[in-house]
Design a binder for these strands. Structure first.
Lengths: 159, 159
DNA sequence: GCAATCCCGATTGCGCTGGTCGGATAGCCG
DNA sequence: CGGCTATCCGACCAGCGCAATCGGGATTGC
């Protein structure tokens, strides 16, 4: 799972779609305008979303894109995976010559990054597009990692 | 919180330090050799780690770096924050002209990324360097996001 | 047929990251 | 002192991936 603005844009656009589509297809130009994303770039993203089966398209005048499923059935993780192709894991490809620097199989930190990837994936899988649209995202955490100190978490960003 | 290979290298190096230091300072050259990271690059990273108070340095022959605290008291999140400066959040700086595209205050997805950041931070705060050294990282998740479907999570990567 | 709209490949500008180089400073050992 | 080892530090660089653009083509409603 890769976290970049590409994925963010895709989620923003999908949220916009879910929000403004009343059964009718929505033209990308509208979305581009509302979300302030360049049209051509959106076209790129929606090409992938369509090929991933997340949206369906209607061509010609009055056409546009529609969600392929209910917003409540659309997980954020799916959207990101559709536009941000998986990319090779950390660098630890077991078997490869440079993978995890030769000796001793996996490096010490391998498990850590793997598990972190799982955490991120699980979280993004637990949130649906409907959740985002209705601002039902906060308050899901806490109390699980009870031991965490009370410091200020910085927001996430990907380069 | 930014996830890049810089942070990964830092954690690898710190783990190496925790593992091979028996009260004595460890020279960077050793770490560079074992972890296959370029020495000059490590110097850069340890400069930040030292300024962040995570390691202490001893100069001169026989010198090197030592952990400033117990490995069990060193949280992974601290290490990453020390080397990967926080960077501006998502792009949504409330009050800024371009922040979260003008109208309506925060954009719909703002809360999502914020909460994702919290999730990542909480996880990385719940793991200490000692955990990593003794491979005590797996099995902490599951059962919380019980609803997640059984798909293959891809490993995390940052550009 | 015309305009709206999706579709698609090729290309580009640019920031960021990982990495290098050269040199300064500090401590140890003859 | 004068060299040796090591940390320290700032400037510099090169490649790459991402965000974004462009030009053109296919479809369909009116």
């Amino acid at each position: 799972m890769k976290l970049s603005t590409k994925g963010r844009y895709a989620v923003m656009a999908m949220a916009d779609l879910a929000h403004h589509s009343n059964g009718r297809p929505v033209a990308l130009a509208e979305v581009a305008d509302r979300q302030e994303i360049s049209l051509s770039y959106l076209e790129q993203l929606f090409g992938r979303l369509r090929r991933g089966g997340l949206v369906s398209s209607v061509r010609g005048p009055g056409g546009g894109y529609m969600l392929a499923r209910e917003a409540g059935e659309m997980r954020i993780a799916d959207i990101i995976l559709a536009v941000d192709e998986p990319i090779k894991a950390t660098r630890c490809t077991p078997g490869s010559p440079t993978g995890c620097h030769s000796h001793k199989g996996r490096c010490l930190t391998h498990d850590l990054w793997e598990e972190l990837g799982n955490q991120i994936y699980l979280y993004l899988s637990s949130v649906t597009l409907a959740d985002v649209c209705e601002r039902r995202v906060l308050g899901t955490s806490r109390m699980f990692f009870g031991s965490a100190r009370s410091e200020r978490p910085a927001a996430v960003a990907a380069s």
